[in-house]
């Protein structure tokens, strides 16, 4: 690692103030610290959100859940409130990384990082979540902007993510056999406003909505409804683990399985 300064923020306001210039916020650090170890980033300072108690916790609200940004994946996976309101979200959290990673990694960190193969962005987009920051509330559709890019501005700190409860939802992940990130992950949510389908791991630009699936499933929420829908490999990743064609195929298989398993 390159050398840097370290500051443990006492409050969100503190953190927002400190996170300027070349300083970087660190939440669970599950992506940032490995990145620093490989000297792929050189922040002047790390501003640690780990001491801000207000950012930890899960609240059941209006049928949905609001999850504090510093809530760990392990806590989300275990939460009775999450299991009740959005069981698919608890299962998704249980499938992120490994147990030690889930004990440190946080929803805020994952969402802010927007790794193109991460799980949470798919959940946020499919469930129509709202990203709550120190400055504003941002709809998930407007938040994820491409590879590792988000709508966050300098000095803006995610404080929570609010998920409305769907009627039914499910997440199916086909794992990269090596990294165990999503090679293709598909989150399907049947909500009052229609069906939303988000795909992670596959797209060149990160998480995206699969509108053709949404249209077919809004007509009939049945796996068979996707049979006739073609998935174009254009814009999908191709690498040593999977070609774009294969990813396109998996998107449909995973989506169908998610529809079948949705509850």
């Amino acid at each position: 690692m390159y050398s840097f300064d370290y500051q443990k923020a006492g409050s969100v306001a503190d953190a927002a103030k400190a996170a300027t210039g070349e300083a970087k916020l660190v939440a669970g650090g599950m992506t940032l610290i490995p990145t620093l170890k490989l000297r792929l980033a050189q922040p002047s300072k790390l501003v640690d959100l780990g001491g801000i108690r207000d950012l930890v916790g899960i609240k059941a609200e209006g049928g949905g859940v609001t999850i504090g940004a510093m809530t760990t994946h392990a806590a989300v996976a275990k939460s009775a409130d999450v299991k009740k309101a959005i069981p698919a979200l608890a299962v998704l959290a249980e499938g992120i990384g490994d147990p030690a990673v889930r004990n440190r990694g946080t929803i805020g960190g994952s969402v802010a990082n927007n790794d193109p193969a991460a799980d949470y962005p798919a959940a946020c987009v499919a469930l129509g979540a709202t990203i709550v920051t120190s400055k504003r509330k941002i709809a998930a559709d407007d938040f994820f902007k491409g590879l590792f890019e988000t709508a966050l501005e300098a000095g803006e700190v995610i404080t929570a993510v609010s998920f409305p409860a769907p009627e039914k939802a499910n997440y199916q992940k086909f794992r990269n056999p090596a990294s165990r990130y999503a090679l293709v992950g598909v989150f399907v949510a049947k909500t009052k406003g229609g069906v939303r389908v988000a795909v992670t791991g596959a797209g060149e630009g990160g998480v995206f909505r699969k509108k053709s699936f949404e249209a077919a499933l809004s007509k009939s929420f049945d796996a068979g409804a996707l049979d006739a829908v073609k998935v174009d490999a254009k814009g999908l990743n191709s690498d040593i683990h999977a070609s774009a064609d294969y990813r396109a195929h998996l998107i449909k298989v995973m989506a169908k399985r998610a529809v079948q398993a949705a509850r």
Partner: peptide, 11 residues
């Protein structure tokens, strides 16, 4: 080397 870490070399 494209498989230079456990992210790509599948143990």
């Amino acid at each position: 080397l494209l498989t230079g870490s456990y992210n790509d070399y599948c143990m």
